[in-house]
Write a protein that binds this DNA or RNA. Structure first.
Length: 270
DNA sequence: AACCAGGGGTACC
DNA sequence: GGTACCCATGGT
């Protein structure tokens, strides 16, 4: 079964390489494969404005339509960008087809805890290793689901160390224990305003503002939030003379940020 | 083979 | 409240 999405603003490859998700890969036969919600999804770009998703219509409506944020008009977001902002305009053009995903909060929190001082490639590797070691099987693939908070919370630090997460190991364990115990209710937090959500996430040991902002943007679709990492720091310093343009970008500042992140990194992958 | 990576905690002042 | 310094591991 398959569902087709007809839009000019949906490019699986751009999304795969965008640095917001870490479990999307290109298969040898040119399909894009991702694991989320304990399931495997394959998709393929069939033309300049058509993407095929291999799933049932019910799964599309319940999971993948929200996941890919398909009810948001990215052409309108691009059109709303401030005029005369050359670097932003270029960033929007270069990564046309990018979308900000609505990923699962738990996985997103963990992935960005692990992202500290790592390249995208290294993040992918350690996320996948964590899944291989502690995740449940997924139908139709040898790849595993992202481990549940309960599973990770039940591990000793020594057991988690086998995934070679380095100094991030206790951070991940603290996140797992807080979520598994209900002390940090990631589902309930979806109803909270941005500042409450941010503060709650920052209670986890090893989660600072930057990681929390990534979770707000890439899981909770708080599109106004701009994670300031080394690359965005570089954008501000090099392209905007040290004065952040983001406060003037309005409700989609975080979306613009992601296009600029990609441009500043200079292309895809790595 | 050094150097550095989508940072954050801690110890100072 | 600001600033060095360390953290553990893998790519380049």
């Amino acid at each position: 079964m398959a569902v087709w999405v007809d839009t000019d603003d949906f490019d699986p490859r751009i999304i795969m390489d965008s640095g917001q998700c870490f479990r999307m890969v290109e298969t040898p036969d040119g399909l894009f494969e991702l694991i989320a919600f304990g399931q495997r999804l394959t998709l393929q770009k069939e033309g300049p404005r058509r993407v095929r998703l291999d799933c049932a219509p019910e799964a599309f409506d319940r999971l993948w339509r929200p996941y890919f944020d398909l009810d948001t008009d990215y052409a309108a977001i691009a059109a709303a960008a401030p005029q005369g902002d050359h670097y932003l305009a270029k960033a929007l053009a270069v990564s046309h087809g990018l979308r900000i995903l609505r990923q699962e909060p738990w996985e997103t929190l963990c992935a960005f805890i692990l992202s500290q001082r790592k390249h995208l490639k290294a993040i992918r590797a350690c996320v996948e290793a964590l899944c291989d070691r502690f995740g449940e099987p997924v139908p139709g693939t040898a790849r595993k689901a992202f481990p549940t908070p309960q599973t990770l919370a039940a591990q000793s630090e020594a057991q988690l160390r086998t995934c070679a997460l380095g100094y991030r190991t206790p951070y991940l364990l603290d996140a797992a224990r807080r979520v598994a115990s209900g002390q940090l209710d990631l589902a309930a937090l979806a109803a909270q305003p941005d500042d409450m959500l941010l503060a709650a996430l920052c209670t986890v040991h090893g989660v600072g503002v930057k990681v929390a902002e990534c979770v707000l943007l890439f899981a909770y679709a708080r599109h106004a939030h701009v994670p300031i990492d080394v690359w965005i720091r570089r954008v501000i310093d090099l392209r905007y003379g040290g004065v952040s343009p983001f406060p003037g970008y309005g409700p989609y500042a975080g979306v613009y940020q992601q296009y600029m992140f990609l441009l500043e990194k200079g292309g895809l992958d790595s």
